[in-house]
Design a binder for these strands. Sequence first.
DNA 1: CGTAATGTTGACTTCAGTCAAAGGATGTGG
DNA 2: CCACATCCTTTGACTGAAGTCAACATTACG
Lengths: 236, 236
Amino acid sequence: MDCQPANCCGARVDCAGCEARPLALCGALKAADVQVMGSIAYPRKLDAGKQLIHEGDPADDVFTLTDGMLKLYKLMPDGRRQITGFMIPGDFIGLAYGQSYVYSAEAVTPSTACRFRRSALLDKMAEYPELEHRLLSLASNELAAAQAQMLLLGRKSARERLASFLLGLASRRGVGEGDAMPLPMSRSDIADFLGLTIETVSRAFTVMRKERLISLPDKHSVIIDDHDALRDAAGD
Amino acid sequence: MDCQPANCCGARVDCAGCEARPLALCGALKAADVQVMGSIAYPRKLDAGKQLIHEGDPADDVFTLTDGMLKLYKLMPDGRRQITGFMIPGDFIGLAYGQSYVYSAEAVTPSTACRFRRSALLDKMAEYPELEHRLLSLASNELAAAQAQMLLLGRKSARERLASFLLGLASRRGVGEGDAMPLPMSRSDIADFLGLTIETVSRAFTVMRKERLISLPDKHSVIIDDHDALRDAAGD
DNA sequence: CGTAATGTTGACTTCAGTCAAAGGATGTGG
DNA sequence: CCACATCCTTTGACTGAAGTCAACATTACG
C-alpha cells in the first residue's frame, strides 16, 4: 500500500518480509518515530475473516495496519456483538490497553499488519518521547471518535446512524460527492457497528437510495449523491 | 478531599487557593508528575449545574477533578444529549483533544477542579516524559471504558444497561454489597448516559427493587443487595 | 410552607426487532 | 459451462421493548 496524499507523512521504513515493500506508516507515525520502529517491526498477513487479536488474550503485541481493513469488536456471552471501529491503513491497533486485549480484531478484507512487540515498543517510547507523544495524540483522536459513536448509539435513529456512518467513512477515505466508495464490510458488520439489525440497515439503505441521497452500484460500494442532504439526515 | 486508599498514589501538591488544602492527585498522577504539575496548577470551584467546559470552545485548559462529580456530554442541535461519562476525583478532563473541546463538562455536585494551561502542560510533558506516559495510560483506560459503553449502548437491554451502570459505579467507588452508594446524578442524567428515557430508567429501578437486587433508601443512593444477581442481569 | 423541580406509574404508540420467504451473488464440482 | 449449494441481502408481515404523553407523587428549596 502506498501513502495516500490525504493522510501521509512521507515516512517509510523497511518492514522485514512485507512483500519487500516499505512499510508506509501513513498518518500514524512521523519520520523520527519510524526510524525508531523500524528495528522492531514484523509483518503479518491475514485472509478475510481471520482474527488478528482475541479479546482477553495477553496483550503482547501492537500493530499498524498497512493494507486492507480490520474490524474491532466486543462479544457478549450469548453472541451479541458490538463492532467498535473499522481500521484502515495507517491506523494503530492495540495501544497500551493494560495486560490483556479488551477487544478482538478480525480482517474484513485481506489485510497486512505490521507487528511490534509491546515490550520493545515500551522500551522505544522511553527512549524516544516523541513516539509516545504521537501515540497520545492518536489515542485522543480515537477517544473523540468513540464519544461521537456513543452519541450515535445512544441517541440517533436508524436513518441518522446510517447517514453518519457513510459520511464518516467518506471523510476518512477522502471520498467526495459522486465518487464510488468501497464498502468492504457486510451488512451484518454495519449493523453490529451501528447497533441495529441487518434488516434495519438494509431498509435504511433502500429508503436513502429511493430518496436519491445515495446510489448502490453493488452491495460493496456506495456513491453519495447528495452530501448536504445526507448531512441533514445524519442529525448533526 | 483526601486521598482514598483504593486509588491513591500518596502524592500531593499545593494548589494555590484550593482552600489551603493540598491538591490530592489521586490515581491520576504519580509523585514525580505532581512535582512537575504543582507549579502550573490553578483551582476552580463549581456549583452544581455549572459548566466547566463547553463543546467547541478553544481547548486552552485541562483539569483534574479533586472533589465532587462532573458529567461529560455531547448535544445534538435538537437538544438530544448523550452523557459520555461521569468523572470522579482523580480523573483527568480535557486530554489532548486537538484544538477544541469535543464535549461539554458540567458539575453534577458542587465540585473543585484544578486547572492547568494546556500550553504549560505540553511544555512540562516535553520536559518530563514520565508525565506523558501516565497520560497515555489514562487515555488507554478511558478508551477501554468507551468501548465497553459502546457495547452497552449498541447491544444491551434497558435492564442490562442499568445493572452494568450500577456495577461500574460500585467498582469505581470501591463500594461493596450492602453498602449505600451515593447516586448524585438525576434520573435524567442516568437516562442520557444509558441511552434511555427517564421513564424507562425509573421502571428498571422499580423492577430491580421489587426483585430485591437493589434497595433505594432515597433517590440519591442505592444499595446493591445481590451482587451476583446484578452481574447476571448485566449480561456479561 | 408552598411552589417548582424531579421522580413514578399507567395507558398507548412507535420504531426497530423478529420471523419468514424469496431474490441475487458467489463458488464448487461434475 | 452449467447445475447446485451456500451465503448474503432484500422485502414483507407481525411483534415487542422502549418511547411518548399524561397524571400523580415526592422531594428540594426559597
